[in-house]
């Protein structure tokens, strides 16, 4: 079980030359992730979802201060433990395709990832991870700029799975993909969860996340509003606890396509 308890993040910054001030960007963030579960974290861009992911693997920018607790399997997940587990048990699928090194062939990058993850035979592990995602032969050997968006996403996915990590944090893994590739990536994440891994899917795309997720946490303005089972997003959203989550659900084109009522909108702002 991976737990985030009351996580808060402050940025330190200088105002003028001397005065230092802290800007809070996350507060009261709590959620749990179980093995075999696909847990979607849904929220608008800039809500702080990616920062939460960075806090989980312990790679926050230098000017941030973290409060709150992280726990993994009943033990605190401190900086030293994060460093030891990174790549081996905790893996991150980054949001940006710029995370691929443009000067290195894809399969070599996957092999490096496997080696960093502690695989005994990195090249074989890389080949296996890539083959599972349909990256074989010539396409596996390409340089990143020769890959289509969908293939590049799959390379990133292969890098995260080559080391056999149990906890995957996927930061917007389907952004910018056409429907077919998007579904392919999401289905792959579902399959990984079904093999017993815990998958945290960070996305702003509630509609498609619901198709694969077990539970959904709604993220808004730096905090987690509520966690609900995916089936709660149903009908007019009566099963949802927060107004924001309900408004988010009802704003989808498949539902009412409803703008929040004036009363709710004022509350959300």
């Amino acid at each position: 079980m991976l737990e985030i308890r009351q996580l808060a993040l402050d940025f330190l910054r200088y105002r003028g030359l001397w005065r230092r001030e802290t800007v809070t960007c996350l507060h009261n963030v709590s959620l749990t992730l179980a093995r075999g579960e696909l847990h979607a974290v849904v929220g608008a861009s800039g809500a702080g979802k990616s920062l939460m992911a960075q806090a989980l693997i312990g790679l926050l920018p230098g000017n941030t201060r973290r409060r709150g607790e992280l726990w993994l399997d009943g033990e605190p997940l401190d900086a030293a433990r994060q460093a030891a587990l990174r790549g081996k048990r905790l893996a991150l699928i980054p949001q940006s395709l710029a995370a691929l090194d443009p000067l290195v062939r894809s399969h070599r990058q996957v092999a490096w990832a496997a080696q960093r993850g502690g695989a005994a035979a990195p090249w074989a592990a890389a080949e296996r991870a890539m083959a599972q995602l349909g990256l074989v032969g010539d396409s596996a050997r390409r340089y990143p700029h020769q890959l289509s968006g969908g293939m590049a996403r799959r390379v990133l996915l292969a890098m995260a799975t080559a080391g056999d990590a149990e906890w995957l944090i996927a930061d917007e893994p389907s952004v910018g993909l056409d429907p077919q590739h998007r579904d392919g990536v999401l289905d792959q994440l579902r399959r990984l969860a079904d093999t017993g891994k815990g998958v945290l899917l960070i996305t702003h795309d509630l509609r498609h996340a619901l198709r694969v997720a077990d539970r959904v946490t709604v993220f808004h303005a730096g905090t987690t509003l509520e966690t609900a089972p995916a089936r709660a997003f149903h009908g007019r959203g009566e099963a949802l606890a927060s107004d924001y989550a309900r408004a988010l659900w009802r704003a989808l084109p498949d539902n009412d396509f409803a703008r929040p009522a004036a009363r709710e909108a004022a509350q959300l702002a």
Binding site: I57, G87, A99, L100, M159
Partner: peptide
């Protein structure tokens, strides 16, 4: 400082690597 390095660190790579 790039995302390439951040990604590599996330895989557990050391600074020197």
């Amino acid at each position: 400082r790039s995302e390439i390095a951040l990604h590599a660190f996330a895989q557990g790579a050391s600074r020197r690597e």
